[in-house]
């Protein structure tokens, strides 16, 4: 989780909105990558959940984009994807072959926690009141997202305690 070259003290509302959109974009893309990986490795349940996350992130991204356009139109952005990494997107190694839906959800939950922590840590450095308000809102939304994932987790039957590795074939040498 990192940002680089962002001056939080002087962050404008426009740039803050753009930053939030970029964060959602990144998470959406990562979940999409994970979903494809799960398709490739015949892990449909995890794939399904990651696609659910893709939708969530996309929906949130669309809402933020609408606000940005309403308020600032197509004014050029001062932030870019090269300034952020892994804010709300799960780490690349959060994906695992044959991961259960539960493991997929836990990975997503960890990412939402990570994103929440990001907004919490950024808040004290913000000067602009509107930007602060936005970040507080985003922080709270991450909590909502966590609850969303938690809700999905509760729907699952408890796991047996057996590990995936007890069942799957060994990797195939190429």
């Amino acid at each position: 989780m990192a940002t680089r070259g962002i001056d939080y003290a002087n962050l404008s509302l426009k740039d803050a909105l753009d930053l939030a959109i970029l964060i959602e974009d990144e998470a959406q893309e990562r979940y999409e990558e994970f979903a494809v990986q799960m398709d490739q490795h015949r892990t449909p349940e995890a794939a399904k959940f990651f696609r659910y996350m893709v939708e969530n992130e996309a929906k949130h991204g669309r809402e933020l984009s609408a606000r940005r356009v309403a308020r600032f139109g197509s004014a050029p952005s001062a932030v870019s994807r090269t300034m952020i990494y892994d804010i709300e997107a799960p780490d690349y190694d959060a994906a695992r072959a044959f991961m259960s839906a539960r493991k997929a959800m836990e990975a997503a939950l960890a990412s939402e926690v990570k994103a929440h922590a990001f907004f919490v840590s950024a808040l004290p450095t913000l000067q602009d009141a509107e930007v602060r308000a936005l970040f507080e809102e985003l922080r709270d939304e991450e909590l909502e997202h966590q609850q969303l994932v938690q809700a999905e987790l509760y729907k699952l039957r408890p796991e047996s305690g057996l590990s995936d590795d007890d069942f799957v074939d060994e990797p195939a040498a190429q």
């Binding site: 990986q37 490739q40 690349y92 994906a95 695992r96 072959a97 990797p171």
Partner: peptide, 20 residues
């Protein structure tokens, strides 16, 4: 083409780095 790499492999990020 869909990568044959195992989920979790570091190479997924490397290829993204190369695209960028």
């Amino acid at each position: 083409l869909k990568p044959i790499w195992c989920p979790g492999c570091g190479d997924f990020s490397v290829v993204q780095g190369i695209y960028r």
